[in-house]
Design a protein around this nucleic acid. Structure first.
Lengths: 131, 131
DNA sequence: ACAAAATGATATCAAAATAGTATCATTATC
DNA sequence: GATAATGATACTATTTTGATATCATTTTGT
């Protein structure tokens, strides 16, 4: 079971590169030279990151992308949620009615705890820590 | 992002039912009456659980399935791994070379810790706790 | 002015994983 | 020996993920 899909992986790689290019605008062309990612796919990913305000984009001839916040403020979990949907351990189990007493059974509390821990820990991983 | 797929979900439901039927052999037919699961799909799932030794099967006219161990010894994480493959947070990230110093960077240690916590906690969830 | 080079938007295609079906062989019971 | 169950396995369908293609828009350099 994969916790990180290729989208997310590529996004991290691209953001790392853009970040290192501090101040300069980075184009998809530059990125595809350096990273081994198919160009149109990378374009789509960066467009999404732009829409989600993690990147600023610049159109036109010398256009490209820059980080819109410092790398210490970009969290891995945000990328996971953007590309893989909301992170939730428990809802998927309980939605399906496995548990008949879903609002206050010990199991649900337990799983909720696990989830909180994972989210909290993932929340502590920033782009900065991935450089 | 789903942490539990339908296979796993169905497996849990079926095991719960079989468990409640303590001592008696439960057929797929019985199960499909009670649970809302397509019969051939459920058959396939139970066959897998049989191969993986979580169930004993009995062929022939009054055949069916029984648990092969007490419900306190059947772990949710085993079901997840059977139907969704091995559970690993970190390998998928580090395999792809995001981290240049993958053998002793702080990030890897951090993610390994998260993984250990999740696995440990999932390991504490048994079929018994799901009854 | 205008061609070039970039992103924006969006539609489409391909591959892989998940979900579900069908069929025939084998086995045990009535 | 017919019936009713699982074993084995091959197949189909759907959904998600991965990847491509195309045209419009914007900016820059000449």
């Amino acid at each position: 079971m994969k916790l990180i899909t290729r989208n997310t992986d590529y996004a991290v790689k691209a953001l790392r590169y853009i970040c290192r290019n501090k101040g300069k605008i980075t184009s998809v062309k530059d990125l595809t030279y350096k990273l081994d990612i198919p160009r149109p796919f990378l374009r789509k990913i960066l467009q999404i990151l732009n829409k989600k305000k993690l990147l600023k984009s610049f159109k036109g001839r010398r256009g490209g992308f820059m980080l819109s916040s410092p790398p210490g403020e970009i969290f891995l979990i945000d990328l996971i949620e953007i590309f893989q949907g909301p992170f939730m351990l428990s809802e998927c189990i309980f939605k399906k009615g496995i548990c008949s007493d879903k609002y206050n059974c010990a199991l649900k509390r337990k799983i909720d705890d696990i989830e909180k821990n994972v989210v909290a820990e993932l929340n502590s991983i920033t782009l900065a820590s991935l450089l």
